[in-house]
């Protein structure tokens, strides 16, 4: 069999339910709302979906690293980056150059990721507790430096939510494509799959997990920039709302919360599926409360279906 077709087949099986859902939702959206999905509007459309895709992709590395790895501070970190970039750097210090703002966002992400990684891998605090602490600290600090929404954002940044919205996402996936071709990726997946086996095979488990947290932080920094681009201002309350929906997107996209299974592309597909669902229900003027119910129902259905699929696959093997 052609290796391209084979890896495509594996990929479809991995992302499974989310991909089917994505195609169906896309078709329905196209039928009901052709104007919104017209090629001319793609830039804006991708810009609308970008923060959620970014948040989902950012949540993935620590989950892949296994043993309960999770970072619930991704959302508040996005909000914190949003506040620092607009309030502290752009409005107060008057810096508008992307050459300063982008590295600053990445650096903030890396530092927060390293702090989470230190707590979760060196001090060995349970990841959900460690990052809950970071969640609360970041949300509080953000509200302190930015009690109410302010604007605007630099023009170049706003363009990242319009015609150039594909750029930051493209950069993320190029980066991930490179990571997949380094020894680190194999070690990450091995650690996520079985950390004791990885240790006996000579993999530096703690180091690999720590780097996963830093990677999550950096990706959350990029997601924070995409959020800033979309809202074109700074808002202390939006960031934290992304955390849980991002984790829903990740598990919808076939990334196992047990670790070692899935990837960033799956997470992105999960996020796009959720975005399309959102956009469909909004088109029907459904209330946001019902939207929440729909998220939950889809997520439960996806997790159950994935589990059934896995059990089926496993049975096929043992026979």
């Amino acid at each position: 069999m052609n290796p391209v077709i084979r890896s495509l087949g594996e990929f479809v099986r991995g992302a499974g339910f989310a991909l089917v859902l994505l195609v169906v939702l896309l078709a329905v959206n196209l039928m009901l709302n052709p104007a919104r999905f017209h090629p001319a509007a793609w830039g804006t459309l991708i810009g609308l979906a970008a923060p959620l895709i970014g948040a989902a992709v950012a949540s993935a590395p620590v989950i892949l690293a296994g043993r309960g790895g999770i970072d619930i501070s991704v959302g508040p970190l996005m909000g914190f980056v949003n506040a620092i970039v607009i309030q502290a750097l752009f409005l107060q210090a008057g810096i508008s150059s992307p050459l300063v703002l982008v590295p600053a966002a990445l650096l903030i992400g890396a530092v927060v990721g390293a702090a989470n990684g230190f707590m979760a891998t060196v001090l060995r605090i349970q990841p959900i507790v460690a990052t809950l602490g970071t969640y609360l600290i970041l949300a509080g600090v953000t509200l302190t430096i930015l009690p109410a929404p302010v604007g605007p954002a630099p023009a170049w940044l706003k363009a990242m939510a319009g015609p150039y919205s594909i750029l930051p996402l493209g950069a993320i996936f190029l980066l991930w494509w490179l990571v997949r071709r380094t020894p680190y990726y194999d070690q990450l997946m091995a650690v996520g799959s079985d950390d004791r086996a990885a240790y006996t095979a000579g993999v530096p488990v703690t180091k690999v997990r720590f780097i996963a947290y830093v990677m999550t932080g950096v990706l959350a920094g990029i997601a924070g920039l995409m959020l800033t681009a979309l809202i074109g201002s700074a808002d202390p309350n939006i960031g934290p709302t992304y955390t849980l929906i991002a984790i829903a997107a990740v598990s919808l996209g076939g990334v196992s919360l047990a670790g070692g299974k899935g990837g960033l592309v799956g997470a992105a597909i999960g996020a796009i599926a959720i975005f399309l669902l959102q956009s469909l229900l909004t088109a029907f003027n459904v209330s946001t409360y019902v939207l929440q119910v729909a998220y939950g129902a889809i997520l439960v259905a996806a997790v159950v279906l994935t589990a059934l699929q896995d059990r089926h696959a496993l049975r096929g093997v043992s026979r």
């Binding site: 194999d186 070690q187 997946m189 091995a190 799959s193 079985d194 004791r196 086996a197 070692g260 299974k261």
Partner: peptide
């Protein structure tokens, strides 16, 4: 419990010590 990586391919399982 301390040898194979069940979610990984044969090739990945082979190469992990010499990535």
């Amino acid at each position: 419990s301390t040898g194979i990586f069940p979610t990984q391919s044969i090739l990945d399982n082979f190469a992990i010590s010499t990535v």
